[in-house]
């Protein structure tokens, strides 16, 4: 149940909305960057392994 924020509902909701939005965006950015780097590294290692096996 939403508390009665009175005359200050605007600033309080704005503070919570923007802050939580920024936190969620930060978490997503870190997570997606991590996933992308992990995928790229795995692809690179697989490519180099294939090449090394081919030259053996």
């Amino acid at each position: 149940m939403m508390p009665d924020l009175g005359a200050y509902a605007g600033p309080v909701l704005l503070a919570y909305g923007v802050s939580l939005g920024l936190l969620v965006a930060l978490v997503l950015w870190v997570w997606l960057a991590g996933r992308r780097t992990q995928r790229d590294l795995a692809a690179l290692e697989a490519r180099l392994n294939r090449r090394e096996n081919a030259t053996d």
């Binding site: 978490v27 870190v30 960057a33 991590g34 780097t37 992990q38 790229d40 590294l41 690179l44």
Partner: peptide, 26 residues
């Protein structure tokens, strides 16, 4: 949250550094 994000970010940086090293060796 700070700890979790720094650990996750450092893992990403370590992987990126390894990828750069592999590319340089290649």
């Amino acid at each position: 949250l700070f700890l979790a994000l720094v650990l996750a970010g450092t893992r990403t940086q370590i992987r990126a550094r390894r990828a750069r090293a592999l590319l340089a060796r290649e």
